[in-house]
Write a protein that binds this DNA or RNA. Structure first.
Length: 984
RNA sequence: GCUGAAGUGGUGGAAUUGGUAGACACGUUGGACUUAAAAUCCAAUGGCCAUUAUGGCCGUGCGGGUUCAAGUCCCGCCUUCAGUACCA
């Protein structure tokens, strides 16, 4: 009987589907195990061989865990909202739902043909209203919550309201907007409902705010930071500009510290954790407030300073200024304060100037009339430069003196205030105290503009560059912290600043709140309507709020998002239904009665909304009453193994952790991390093929002939090339008309192509479709080969030529069970060698799977098959358990042979064979005998031989004597069971 | 610049606590079968030198070091890939 893989694979895929073999129950006597893949966006291009890599790995693990007696949850679904379907709709008018449905069909067919053990009964699609109902629900929960820094968790907004009613907001320590002002209970109770709502919005975990966003004009939408690569949009490569817009935001910054600390508790790769740490960007230091010296006072003083009058007088003057600040109310003498953040408060006595970002709000207010023209010009020039320009041009030092001075908090000396574009408005407070001796950028700036560089480090030379090594420093020239190290000095400075009321210890995070609005059609609608301009949530019981139909998927002519095209997109609060826009209350304009109909939100949610809780929804995907039942979450708890690409490091994987922590705070999930272990699969690259066209001619030179020739490499489709890099010239000629009459210069009778490893992409003609591989070699070969290519996490090139290796392995495996006369497996007792091969294989494969070293177990299978073939093994006692070992990797052939051995149940229910060490016990060892560390020959010796005897036997051996040539060895090292080394 | 990962034959890669470097494949070469091809099977295959079978030298990015013994450990470099970037 022949190994007919196409027939076998179709048969078992059908069997698994019909018998729901991989359906997981939400309770079981077995221990649970949850294996998750990052669900795909169903793109129109379908899958290429790179896509299933992670799915194959997770499938092997899931199948292995089933053999090991676990109740395994291994679901799959689609992240089906997204831009490509919308772009297609814009071009063709086809509804994105239809495009998406078609694409999903293709994906499903392609996934099915690879033989995954997914529980498809739990499929979710983010664009399905039954699913996004719960995305909207989470949004409402976030809206109804605030972050209490005292309890360090999210709490109900209703509790916050009752605190405000009783105590105002002064006792509340919340993660909230900076612009919140203090109010008392009386104040609160006196506010209008609109005023109250406006204040509450500054506390909610999702809030509306005017934010500076990344606006992509070409796409007509806002992009998140992680959707921008090198200053242009990730999709399409369009330019991105900064723009102020009112947008929904997520207060992820409230969770910065917990997101950072949580990394310690999860088994994710170091590089991924490091990416998240950098993204969160925690810096510990102090905030320091510098008082700006009012202009007229300063002018007076600079005159007196130049006259070298006494310090006392200056101090008096400053004292006077200070008092003035407290009492002065007239605009002229308003005392400005500049708050800075520093990680090095210990260097404060080295601060010889300050720098503000050009966009800093104080710039226009403190600039002196003499400097105004120059400052304005600089501010304008900076604003014109794009972020990209500024990034590319790091080396140029630029800045302008504002003419204003700030007062050093301790020395009370005036220090110059400059503006410079090396200070970023978006980080910290947009202002720095510049310490040129301790920071290279400040140093360069000071050198460039001839500003003082006082040295506050003991015994350190700063004539060439700044000294930033804080651990090996003793502070000098710094008043009360002289002689202290970094740690002590920092503590003391913070203490003194607090005494002055001019600073405190502070921790700063780089992590920004996440903009949550997108100006797109194909995303989740917000469950939000606007009453008097204030956002209101639709009651949960009326969800989902489904996407409206629109005629056009582009932004409206007035610049509103695509949902602005919908004519039926208003919310009637009486019927709790979506109604026509015509019915919207016009009270504000015409004084008419409020009829309870209000406009709905026009933005939709971003791509990551739907993927931030999907892993929990899989636990109970059909539940209509709750996002998931408590029974389901208590049973499955969290993802045990998550496999996916590292490109989601700071997007999906951070947002999901944030939502999970929020769900934890609400008491809905038992773990505040959703995935215990995470593995990033590496990318599979393409092996591109090149032909070489002679410049200016329609003539191609074979690879070996191009040296010194003026040729242009052109991508040829990889399907035209065989395993020996020879081009199918006819196929190539027929590929495109311009090659029809091309001339080919051959070497050794063939045309050889050049090869190079590149990312798989259509434009490089190196994309390999799994459909073709499955048809030609079978899914089991595809699965084995993907694993055999190399370590899971590594980037590695695909070369279809190599698949014949694993394919012929499967044929050899088949031949262990079948020959021309049919099944040849017998009940004959296994030999010692048979058992040794089997148990060696069990041990290795089990270890490999536990270590996710799938490539090496494929080798192990090959070795086992080669050995058993050589041993002419037909023993069922060996060949039956062997199938269970192979089954996670090549499930179809395993099922087929398993049933041929007489089993009626799927092999997936079989127990994993148990390793017995007794079969591997050896009585002798072939010792490598080395001289000065170099192996020269081998010697078979009994393993129970003593060290002394081994030495004696080896030394007596003729080849040892031949090696030594009469020399006396200095030393003989004998490691029993391992090696003998003779030194001399 | 910083952070992380990695550099091993013609290629993908293996070597689990320092102990026989190159497992397993691809490719290549030679052979068997065949009219031929495919498929299958057998043999060789890190480089250099020598050759009568026995052998010798070099070899895991580079330079040092530790050790009886280093791909593996330590120090200093180089290169590649990825992330991040004037983060105060």
């Amino acid at each position: 009987m022949k190994y007919n893989f196409n027939e076998i694979e179709a048969k078992w895929q059908k069997y698994w589907a019909e018998n729901q073999t991989f359906k997981a129950e939400n309770n079981s006597d077995k221990p649970k195990y949850y294996v998750l893949d990052m669900f795909p966006y169903p793109s129109g291009a379908g899958l290429h061989v790179g896509h299933p890599l992670g799915y194959i790995a997770s499938d092997i693990y899931a199948r292995y865990k089933r053999h090991k007696g676990f109740n395994v949850l291994h679901p799959q679904g689609y992240d089906s909202f997204g831009l490509p379907a919308e772009q297609y709709a814009i071009q063709t008018g086809q509804h994105p739902a239809i495009t998406t449905e078609d694409n999903i069909k293709t994906y499903r067919r392609q996934l099915d043909q690879i033989g995954f053990s997914f529980d498809w009964s739990r499929e979710v699609r983010t664009s399905d209203p039954k699913y996004y109902k719960w995305t909207q629900w989470v949004f409402i929960q976030l809206f109804n919550s605030w972050y209490n820094n005292d309890s360090d968790k999210a709490e109900a907004i209703s509790e916050l309201i009752s605190i405000f009613e009783k105590e105002g907001n002064v006792t509340v320590d919340a993660a909230c907007d900076d612009t919140v002002e203090a109010f008392t209970a009386e104040n609160w109770n006196g506010f209008t409902p609109e005023e109250q709502q406006e204040i509450l919005l500054k506390y909610r975990l999702t809030y509306l705010a005017e934010t500076e966003v990344n606006w992509c004009p070409a796409l007509g939408t806002v992009l998140a930071n992680d959707e921008i690569v090198n200053g242009v949009s990730e999709r399409g490569g369009h330019p991105v500009v900064r723009k102020k817009m009112t947008q929904w935001s997520m207060r992820i910054s409230a969770y910065a510290e917990r997101l950072l600390q949580g990394l310690e508790t999860i088994d994710w790769t170091d590089s991924l954790k490091e990416s998240q740490r950098n993204w969160i960007g925690k810096s510990v230091g102090a905030s320091v407030t510098f008082n700006v010296i009012p202009t007229e006072r300063h002018t007076e003083r600079s005159r007196s300073a130049s006259d070298e009058e006494s310090n006392d007088e200056m101090l008096n003057q400053v004292q006077h200024d200070k008092e003035n600040c407290h009492s002065a109310l007239d605009a002229e003498s308003t005392c400005h304060k500049i708050e800075v953040f520093t990680t090095r408060p210990d260097t404060i006595f080295g601060a010889s100037f300050m720098t503000l970002a050009p966009e800093h709000e104080l710039v226009s207010q403190i600039t002196t009339p003499e400097q105004k023209a120059e400052v304005d010009a600089y501010v304008e020039a900076t604003a014109k430069r794009s972020e990209r320009d500024r990034m590319a041009d790091v080396k140029t030092i630029s800045g302008v003196f504002t003419g204003a001075y700030a007062e050093h908090p301790f020395t009370k000396e005036p220090i110059q205030i400059w503006i410079g574009d090396y200070v970023l408005a978006s980080y910290g407070t947009g202002a720095v105290m510049a310490v040129p001796c301790g920071d290279q950028r400040d140093y360069d700036f000071a050198k460039h503009f001839g500003i003082d560089i006082p040295n506050i480090f003991e015994g350190v030379d700063i004539s060439e560059e700044a000294f930033a090594d804080k651990d090996n420093t003793i502070i000098a020239n710094s008043d009360f912290i002289n002689g202290m190290n970094y740690k002590k000095a920092t503590k003391r400075v913070i203490y003194e600043l607090e005494q002055l009321g001019q600073g405190e210890g502070k921790t700063n995070y780089r992590l920004r709140d996440a903009v949550f609005s997108r100006q797109r059609y194909w995303g989740e609608p917000f469950p939000v309507y606007y009453k008097n301009g204030m956002p209101q949530m639709i009651d949960v019981e009326h969800l989902p709020l489904e996407l409206p139909e629109v005629e056009k998927y582009l932004p409206t002519e007035t610049g509103e998002p695509p949902l602005g095209n919908a004519t039926k997109w208003a919310w009637c609060t009486k019927t709790n239904t979506v109604v026509s826009n015509d019915l919207v209350t016009l009270s504000a304009v015409e004084g008419s009665q409020d009829n309870g109909v209000y406009p709905l939100e026009l933005n939709t949610m971003p791509g990551w909304a739907g993927s931030s809780q999907y892993f929990n929804r899989y636990m109970d995907p059909q539940n209509d009453e709750a996002i998931f039942s408590q029974e389901a979450i208590n049973y499955w708890q969290q993802v045990d193994l998550y496999i996916g690409g590292s490109e989601h490091a700071t997007g999906h994987l951070l947002y999901s952790r944030f939502w999970q922590k929020f769900m934890f705070d609400l008491g809905l999930v038992g773990h505040d991390e959703f995935a215990k272990k995470l593995i990033n699969q590496g990318m599979i690259l393409g092996t591109s093929a090149f032909v070489y066209r002679v410049e200016g001619e329609n003539k191609f030179l074979s690879k070996g002939l191009i040296d010194g020739q003026n040729v242009q490499p052109i991508h040829a489709d990889v399907s035209f090339v065989n395993s020996s890099d020879e081009l199918d010239i006819e196929a190539f000629k027929n590929w495109r008309p311009e090659f029809k009459d091309a001339e080919f210069v051959l070497e050794d009778g063939v045309y050889k192509v050049g090869r190079d490893v590149e990312k798989m992409s259509k434009s490089k003609y190196n994309v390999v479709n799994p459909d073709n591989i499955c048809a030609q070699y079978g899914a089991d070969s595809l699965r084995l080969y993907e694993m055999f290519l190399g370590p899971l996490e590594q980037y590695k090139p695909w070369n279809t030529a190599g698949i014949t290796g694993v394919h012929s392995f499967l044929k050899k495996l088949w031949k262990l069970y079948f020959d021309d006369n049919g099944l040849k497996v017998t009940d004959v007792a296994p030999t010692k060698d048979n058992l040794k091969t089997l148990h060696k294989t069990i041990k290795k494969v089990e270890e490999d799977i536990e270590n996710f070293s799938f490539n090496t177990s494929v080798s192990t299978f090959m070795i086992a098959t080669n050995e058993l073939t050589a041993q002419k093994c037909t023993s069922k006692e060996i060949l039956e358990p062997l199938l269970v070992l192979v089954s996670p990797y090549a499930p179809h052939i395993a099922e087929e042979l398993w049933s041929a051995l007489g089993h009626t149940e799927s092999i997936s229910t079989a127990d994993f064979p148990i390793f017995e060490a007794s079969h591997l016990v050896e009585s002798s060892k072939e010792y490598p005998i080395s001289f000065n560390g170099k192996m020269r020959f081998k010697l078979e010796l009994p393993l129970d031989m003593s060290k002394e005897e081994i030495e004696k036997t080896v030394m007596a051996h003729e080849r040892t004597q031949a090696q030594l040539q009469g020399r006396e060895p200095k030393k003989v090292i004998v490691v029993p069971g391992k090696i003998v080394n003779i030194v001399g």
